[in-house]
Design a protein around this nucleic acid. Sequence first.
RNA 1: GGGCCUGUAGCCUAGCCUGGAUUGGGCGGCAGUCUCCUAAGCUGCAGAUCGCGGGUUCGAAUCCCGCCAGGUCCGCCA
Length: 579
Amino acid sequence: MEYPLYQAKKEIIKILSSTLVKLGLTCEIKLEKPPEEMGDFAFPCFSLASQAKKSPVSIAEEIVSHLSLSGWIKNIESKSGYVNFIIDRKKLSVQTLNLVIQNKDSYGFLEKKKTRVIVEHTSANPNGPLHVGRARNPIIGDTIARLLKAAGYQVKSQFYLDDMGKQVAILTWGLENLTKKDVPDSDYYKLYKKEDHRLVGYYQIANARMNEDKNIEEEIQSLIRKSELGDIPTLKKMEQAYLPALDGIKESLNRINVEIDEFIPESMFVKNKSADDVVNKLKQSKISGEEDGAYYLDLESFGVKGRSTKFFFKRKDGTTLYATRDIAYHMWKVKNADMLVNILGEDHKLESRQVEIALQIMGAEHLPKVIFYSFVSLPEGKMSTRRGRVVYLDDLIKECIDRAAKEVKKRRGRELSEEKIRNIAETVGIGALRYNIIKVQPEKDIVFKWEEALNFEGNAAPFIQYSHARACSILSKNPGKFEKFDASLLNHPSEINLIMNIAQFPIVVEDASEGFKPHLMSLYLFDLASSFNEFYRDCPVLQEENQKLRNARIVLVDAARVVIKTGLNLLGIVAPEEM
RNA sequence: GGGCCUGUAGCCUAGCCUGGAUUGGGCGGCAGUCUCCUAAGCUGCAGAUCGCGGGUUCGAAUCCCGCCAGGUCCGCCA
């Protein structure tokens, strides 16, 4: 499937390059999107100025005088150093609407590729519930996985399960040595009835006891050591401890439409000895060193700076470290995929660099592409489980849905059934939550404020969902389908603008996925929904008396509906038919 | 002490990589808008020294240097 805007772009590049050759100029042709009213594509002539020894304005004029109109190109203008192209709107309308109607939910998807991708995200310690700080991770990861799938890649999402080591050992000790008396049920557990909220209490109290009591610390240390040596009974015991907590995490993720294909346990790389292989290979490296029986790589020559440039991968007691096993996991991923994507908090930047260098040393064929996100903090400061200053993902989910239910009742309480209200509230609340997080670039700090997270107006998911519901409402009131329609009748500026936006969709899928910029999709959907709302204001559909125009508008509404739905779906947001 | 990231109207954000056409949006505020497909909408108004100071360039929010502020990291932890 070749999308119309790609065809038009290709044609412009073709005639531009032959004209540049005629004029004796060479440069890479990059087309920009000009401000509205100036055209559909623009070619800036500024970089040619020094080469041609002429002003950009006169170069643009000269280029225009050599160009002629053809297939897609309806008009060419030179303006202040730009060559602006206006493409054939009628042709675009006809082809775009036909493509959407024919392809439905797969409109916008790109050609299938052979490339296998593993997107690793979330990978939280299974010792308690997810909090809002970490919530950015699954949402970014899941959205990127969905976008890459739409771009044609063969994608698997993975959760690297830290099933050994300190956090789980502390939890395990807590469950074995503490009773209900030591750990009374928390309000959260009473409210949510989820095991992760119950177990985190055991973790917290055990953690406190460990800090006070050397003996307890020793007991936990011994659990850790046994797990790192791959002791099966110990690993089994730890598994029993964390599994219910993991189920709680899964339930929360499920609630926000995050789909994880595979859970890969860290202990796998101890059991199959691949972590030991990593140690042996790294020891042979020129930059490896030994200190007191422990082994490290000195990363200074790789540009790592700071107080210590030593990266330890084997302890003096012979056991491996978390990072060593992470390297083994990455080597395994390299074998099983052609492209790796990791979603990590910015606090993991150094560790990620260490893994990357180790992979290079070990001759990995490709390195992971890492998307780092900054932390979500609260207005009163950093989130901290210990100080009880924390907002859980489950809190956010609950508040979003409660608030959405209130809004639905306020507007439509009298006409809708309780069940319908609940369904809409779930869809709208979860949508608002995901959209709020994904619309901001990952590297920006976020200060979490309830009034912002729960604001359902303006640039927020409900705005987009509402446009979809409006489109569905029109279509539901229209009897019959239209096999034949004349898209060239759609001449109103609001109609043309809406079609232009629909035609952009495949390009946005490409840009957002190839650039790992999921926020581009949210920005686009907001524009698309805005242009639908303007069309809705300007162009009555069901009341239109001209049958042919009415039919064409109905098809346009349907096309907008399809694209909004598909786009929201790429963000893991459900498009409601009613709200 | 050093590395990396961020700094755009009262608040939030796009643009920055790949320098150019008047810095786009949204929230909040003010003023309009439902005899007509759901007003979670639409229209208008007010609000910006693009953190600060230099430099490169015909041209800098965008590139380079310095500084300031916030985040984050520099464990034989995970």
